[in-house]
Write a protein that binds this DNA or RNA. Structure first.
Lengths: 161, 161
DNA sequence: GTTCATTAGATTGTGTACAATTGAATTGTA
DNA sequence: TACAATTCAATTGTACACAATCTAATGAAC
């Protein structure tokens, strides 16, 4: 602490010269940190199901859209094949999904839930409620945060064009 | 798509039976996705400085508190030694920091900026402005998001006790 | 119909994240 | 002062993320 004072005085510069470069003035840092902290809250519940968070959100998509292509899954989760390919293989190993090439277009790989992957939905049904109860925001705050995040996400996705 | 209809009808269950398990009803997913998307916007600017996002936020802490211990750095960034040790070694390799044991307590490792690490602050000064200009939120929205995220973070951190 | 560009996944390599364990240094306590 | 408990960082192992590259399949243009 004292060391820093000495050094920055020596250089004639203090952190105050670059207020935008202070961690506390960043929007991205709380986003990054909160994301990891919330995911940390999922871990005990997902461990009990032998799932990682990424596998869990992939299953969420599959429960809604079984047989989705890897590409479409990646568009929904904003993840690429470098992340999805090994994860889907590991989910296949665990017996949660099957990976099958599309007959009409052999480039496309489709992901299908197995019976076990489908039944996982019932086992996971209690998770969102448990998470909600340990997220310290009231309904209005959670709703406001949700809307701001989706507004941010929607605009960032559009930028990609 | 049609496949899913058939399968879920066969099982007698549809995704609607578990509305809480729909990706769009989760608060965590947009948090996780937005965090990664915003960090993605940093990449071109940080690549030019040969920095990763994690290294960049570590430097932010060091610019404010040179000579900080690994433990304190981890508390600020919410990262543990498993993440920080290899990252700090790589930053030392690049000549940005030096790692020195604390003379008074040899368990403690302190991280000191080199001249190059200190001068990086000037090179990085333009980054926050560039990021701000590509974040599609107005001032009020960004402020509201910032406050909600810090409220969430503060409460999650307290829970740890 | 052949060729060229495009597309979808897979692969490779680097860098986090993080749980769990280890080991050295320090502290608290009898 | 021994010595058990604690603390701090490093290590190990697993699982993402993601850029870059590769390969096979498809589609489009001629």
């Amino acid at each position: 602490m004292e060391t820093q004072e000495i050094i920055t005085e020596t250089a004639g510069i203090t952190a105050e010269d670059f207020p935008m470069l202070k961690l506390e003035n960043q929007l991205c840092f709380p986003l990054y940190a909160a994301s990891r902290e919330v995911i940390r809250r999922y871990r005990p519940f997902l461990d009990a199901l032998d799932l990682t968070y990424t596998q869990y959100i992939a299953l969420m998509v599959l429960w809604e859209t079984d047989g989705i292509s890897v590409k479409s899954l990646g568009e929904k989760l904003l993840l690429d094949s470098g992340t999805l390919t090994p994860m889907l293989k590991s989910m296949e190993q665990k017996g949660l999904v099957e990976r099958k090439r599309d007959g009409k277009d052999e480039r496309v790989l489709r992901v299908f839930l197995t019976e076990e992957g489908r039944s996982m939905q019932e086992r996971a049904a209690a998770v969102p409620g448990k998470i909600a109860s340990c997220i310290p925001l009231n309904t209005e705050e959670a709703a406001a945060l949700y809307l701001l995040l989706y507004k941010l996400l929607a605009a960032l996705k559009e930028e990609k064009d």
